[in-house]
Lab assay of single mutants.
Amino acid sequence: DDVELRDGDWRVELKDADEEILRAVEEAIKNGASEQELRELAERLIR
């Protein structure tokens, strides 16, 4: 699993992620995405 989400800690570690993925995830976090939404976003972007 390349995506690590810690309970109560919104730092997201994406291994080997490019800047576009990181920006998309950071934007989702700023917009108040839930953990499930972040997982789905990350899975779509990593593929």
Rank of each mutant, 00 (worst) to 15 (best):
residue 31 N to C: 02
residue 38 L to Y: 03
residue 5 L to E: 14
residue 44 R to K: 08
residue 41 L to I: 05
residue 27 E to A: 07
residue 27 E to M: 12
residue 10 W to E: 02
residue 28 A to S: 02
residue 35 E to L: 11
residue 45 L to A: 03
residue 29 I to Q: 11
residue 9 D to H: 06
residue 4 E to A: 13
residue 47 R to V: 06
residue 37 E to F: 08
residue 33 A to W: 14
residue 30 K to Y: 10
residue 43 E to P: 01
residue 1 D to E: 14
residue 23 R to D: 02
residue 23 R to V: 04
residue 46 I to K: 09
residue 29 I to Y: 15
residue 9 D to E: 02
residue 1 D to F: 14
residue 5 L to H: 14
residue 24 A to Q: 14
residue 27 E to P: 00
residue 33 A to H: 04
residue 29 I to C: 04
residue 45 L to G: 01
residue 13 E to P: 07
residue 33 A to I: 09
residue 36 Q to C: 04
residue 6 R to P: 05
residue 3 V to D: 11
residue 34 S to L: 03
residue 41 L to S: 00
residue 34 S to D: 06
residue 39 R to V: 04
residue 1 D to P: 10
residue 32 G to M: 02
residue 12 V to A: 12
residue 10 W to G: 03
residue 7 D to I: 11
residue 6 R to S: 14
residue 36 Q to T: 09
residue 35 E to K: 06
residue 32 G to K: 03
residue 28 A to P: 00
residue 31 N to I: 05
residue 28 A to W: 05
residue 47 R to L: 14
residue 4 E to Q: 12
residue 32 G to W: 02
residue 28 A to N: 00
residue 16 D to T: 08
residue 24 A to M: 15
residue 17 A to K: 05
residue 24 A to H: 03
residue 22 L to Q: 06
residue 1 D to R: 10
residue 47 R to S: 12
residue 42 A to R: 05
residue 31 N to Y: 07
residue 15 K to D: 05
residue 11 R to W: 14
residue 6 R to L: 11
residue 5 L to C: 11
residue 21 I to K: 01
residue 47 R to I: 07
residue 11 R to V: 06
residue 1 D to G: 10
residue 38 L to G: 04
residue 34 S to P: 02
residue 15 K to I: 11
residue 10 W to R: 02
residue 46 I to Y: 09
residue 32 G to D: 01
residue 21 I to W: 04
residue 32 G to V: 00
residue 6 R to C: 09
residue 35 E to C: 03
residue 35 E to W: 13
residue 18 D to T: 13
residue 25 V to S: 00
residue 37 E to T: 06
residue 33 A to E: 01
residue 16 D to M: 09
residue 18 D to M: 03
residue 37 E to P: 00
residue 28 A to E: 01
residue 22 L to D: 00
residue 2 D to Y: 10
residue 33 A to Y: 14
residue 19 E to W: 13
residue 6 R to Q: 13
residue 45 L to N: 01
residue 7 D to W: 10
residue 39 R to S: 03
residue 13 E to F: 15
residue 40 E to A: 14
residue 44 R to Q: 07
residue 20 E to M: 13
residue 43 E to N: 13
residue 1 D to Q: 12
residue 35 E to D: 10
residue 46 I to D: 02
residue 4 E to W: 06
residue 33 A to T: 04
residue 1 D to H: 13
residue 30 K to M: 12
residue 41 L to Q: 00
residue 4 E to D: 09
residue 9 D to F: 07
residue 2 D to T: 11
residue 7 D to A: 07
residue 25 V to N: 00
residue 21 I to M: 06
residue 18 D to G: 14
residue 40 E to L: 13
residue 22 L to E: 01
residue 17 A to R: 04
residue 44 R to S: 08
residue 45 L to R: 02
residue 38 L to C: 05
residue 21 I to E: 01
residue 30 K to T: 03
residue 11 R to K: 07
residue 20 E to W: 15
residue 14 L to V: 04
residue 31 N to L: 12
residue 39 R to H: 04
residue 4 E to L: 11
residue 46 I to V: 09
residue 24 A to V: 13
residue 12 V to D: 11
residue 43 E to C: 15
residue 38 L to I: 13
residue 31 N to R: 12
residue 33 A to V: 09
residue 2 D to K: 10
residue 23 R to N: 05
residue 44 R to G: 05
residue 41 L to W: 02
residue 20 E to D: 10
residue 33 A to L: 14
residue 19 E to A: 08
residue 38 L to M: 04
residue 44 R to H: 06
residue 47 R to N: 15
residue 12 V to M: 09
residue 16 D to V: 07
residue 25 V to M: 13
residue 45 L to E: 01
residue 4 E to K: 11
residue 31 N to Q: 10
residue 12 V to Y: 09
residue 27 E to R: 12
residue 28 A to D: 00
residue 21 I to Q: 02
residue 11 R to N: 05
residue 7 D to N: 11
residue 32 G to C: 01
residue 3 V to I: 13
residue 5 L to S: 11
residue 4 E to Y: 04
residue 38 L to R: 02
residue 20 E to G: 14
residue 20 E to H: 13
residue 17 A to F: 14
residue 10 W to L: 04
residue 3 V to R: 11
residue 36 Q to N: 09
residue 18 D to Y: 08
residue 41 L to G: 00
residue 5 L to R: 07
residue 15 K to S: 08
residue 32 G to E: 01
residue 5 L to K: 11
residue 9 D to R: 04
residue 16 D to Q: 08
residue 35 E to T: 05
residue 44 R to W: 11
residue 38 L to F: 02
residue 2 D to G: 11
residue 39 R to E: 03
residue 17 A to T: 05
residue 2 D to I: 13
residue 29 I to P: 00
residue 9 D to T: 04
residue 16 D to E: 05
residue 22 L to F: 08
residue 26 E to H: 05
residue 27 E to I: 10
residue 9 D to G: 08
residue 29 I to D: 04
residue 40 E to F: 10
residue 21 I to P: 00
residue 1 D to V: 10
residue 12 V to H: 08
residue 2 D to P: 11
residue 26 E to Y: 15
residue 13 E to D: 09
residue 19 E to S: 07
residue 30 K to G: 05
residue 19 E to P: 15
residue 44 R to V: 04
residue 25 V to Y: 05
residue 17 A to S: 05
residue 46 I to Q: 07
residue 42 A to E: 02
residue 14 L to W: 05
residue 30 K to Q: 08
residue 47 R to M: 15
residue 41 L to F: 04
residue 45 L to P: 01
residue 10 W to H: 02
residue 47 R to W: 08
residue 6 R to M: 13
residue 19 E to Y: 12
residue 22 L to G: 02
residue 1 D to A: 12
residue 4 E to P: 08
residue 11 R to G: 06
residue 4 E to T: 07
residue 6 R to I: 09
residue 28 A to L: 06
residue 13 E to T: 14
residue 27 E to F: 12
residue 19 E to N: 08
residue 25 V to I: 14
residue 29 I to S: 13
residue 34 S to F: 01
residue 44 R to A: 08
residue 34 S to V: 02
residue 32 G to Q: 01
residue 13 E to W: 15
residue 23 R to Q: 07
residue 10 W to D: 02
residue 4 E to F: 04
residue 5 L to T: 11
residue 22 L to T: 05
residue 18 D to E: 07
residue 5 L to Y: 09
residue 45 L to Y: 05
residue 42 A to T: 10
residue 5 L to W: 14
residue 45 L to W: 04
residue 2 D to L: 13
residue 30 K to N: 07
residue 39 R to M: 05
residue 32 G to F: 02
residue 4 E to H: 14
residue 30 K to S: 07
residue 1 D to N: 11
residue 17 A to P: 02
residue 41 L to T: 00
residue 35 E to H: 09
residue 37 E to A: 03
residue 20 E to T: 13
residue 43 E to G: 13
residue 3 V to N: 14
residue 29 I to K: 10
residue 7 D to Y: 08
residue 22 L to A: 04
residue 31 N to W: 11
residue 44 R to E: 05
residue 21 I to D: 01
residue 37 E to G: 02
residue 43 E to Q: 15
residue 11 R to H: 03
residue 12 V to W: 13
residue 18 D to S: 06
residue 29 I to R: 05
residue 5 L to I: 15
residue 14 L to Q: 01
residue 21 I to Y: 03
residue 25 V to K: 00
residue 36 Q to E: 09
residue 18 D to R: 08
residue 43 E to F: 14
residue 27 E to N: 12
residue 13 E to L: 15
residue 17 A to W: 08
residue 32 G to H: 03
residue 18 D to K: 10
residue 25 V to C: 01
residue 40 E to W: 13
residue 20 E to Y: 15
residue 40 E to G: 04
residue 20 E to V: 10
residue 30 K to R: 12
residue 39 R to I: 06
